[in-house]
């Protein structure tokens, strides 16, 4: 499978621009200062953006960098959220334990699903993620006595420390930043380089001695872990869970975010998540046809801007450098 718009080389271009880290740190500073001055609704909106950005980035780790056609990523998100919800409503365990357990349970599930999937390639891989993911959905949907079925679980009790909108905001922001830093480090590590190499050329990777199935499985588990972490954040924000969190159309939504922002750029999915979350809330309040709008956006993206918004911006910018010129020759 070739994914020509996934181009790591663009990151090289970005590295020579000195103001990028400065820009990011100042953005972070602004984000940290916002809660006292922002109305509650916008605070909630931003918090949701952070949570969704983590979810979208965790998918892009396997999809964009790993080249794995993960079509049902929402499962790990939903299972993370359900783990917190069930622990907090069915046991007397403390919140922090639930919050630690959730990503681990999601990672464990990713290990099981991934173990079957990495034996397959391309579309078959995608189909199997879809089938096994829907199996998990069906179990949660139907296991009424344990998960409350399609009613979901509402009014999940949270300790006072993590229940005010401001503290939830800071927790979301903090977790997002820490997780993104970790994921970025992983992408730049030998593990990440090898993952990208496998995406580009699995046969060759194998013949230089890489165990590609094991490597892809590890990446799959890692991305499941971070999706589970996003699930914890979701419970903090909404204090409720429902099976729709892990229905396949939720996964499709995350895919759209990644594509919208740009899968070749590390922060692309975050931007895509922000755009989609804000749009859905704005459009949703004015008209009934949000899905139509999302469909049209997606249609335009696919036909005219497959490298995504941030990818497009970087391309515009990258043209001016020597490396950008080389890239053009390469395509």
């Amino acid at each position: 499978m070739s994914m020509s718009w996934l181009d790591r080389s663009k990151e090289k271009t970005a590295r020579v621009i000195p103001f990028r880290p400065i820009l990011l740190v100042s953005l972070l500073g602004v984000a940290a200062l916002l809660p006292p001055i922002l109305p509650a609704y916008y605070l909630y909106l931003l918090t949701t953006v952070y949570m969704t950005a983590l979810l979208a980035t965790s998918l892009n780790f396997v999809l964009g960098y790993g080249g794995l056609l993960q079509l049902h990523h929402a499962v790990f998100f939903g299972v993370g959220a359900y783990t917190v919800a069930l622990v907090l409503t069915k046991t007397t365990w403390p919140f922090w334990l639930a919050a630690v357990l959730a990503p681990l349970v999601a990672a464990l599930l990713a290990a099981v699903i991934g173990w079957f999937c990495v034996r397959l390639r391309g579309l078959y891989f995608g189909m199997l993620t879809l089938a096994l993911g829907q199996l998990v959905w069906a179990i949660i949907y139907k296991w009424r006595s344990f998960t409350s079925g399609d009613d979901g679980i509402h009014g999940i009790p949270l300790p006072g420390l993590v229940s005010s909108p401001t503290s939830v905001y800071y927790i979301n922001l903090g977790v997002l930043v820490v997780c993104l830093l970790i994921l970025y480090a992983v992408i730049k590590s030998p593990f990440g380089l090898t993952l990208v190499a496998i995406r580009d050329n699995p046969v060759r990777s194998q013949s230089v001695g890489v165990n590609i199935k094991r490597h892809q499985l590890a990446a799959f588990v890692l991305s499941g872990f971070f999706a589970g972490a996003a699930g914890v954040l979701f419970v903090l924000i909404e204090q409720s869970v429902s099976p729709s969190l892990l229905y396949w159309s939720k996964s499709a939504e995350i895919l759209i975010m990644d594509l919208l922002g740009g899968m070749a750029v590390f922060l692309g999915p975050s931007l895509g998540a922000a755009i989609l979350v804000v749009l859905s809330m704005v459009v949703g309040t004015y008209m009934d046809y949000w899905l139509l709008v999302m469909g049209l956006i997606l249609l335009l993206l696919v036909l005219f801007l497959p490298q995504g918004v941030l990818g497009y911006l970087q391309e515009l910018f990258g043209r001016k450098t020597v490396q950008g010129g080389e890239r053009d020759a390469a395509n």
Partner: peptide
């Protein structure tokens, strides 16, 4: 184009068709 692009194109049409039916 890539499989993913094709999948997402048909999914865009799913969203549009759903709201048109509505």
């Amino acid at each position: 184009r890539e499989h993913l692009i094709q999948v997402l194109l048909t999914y865009a049409l799913v969203l549009i068709a759903g709201d048109l039916v509505k």
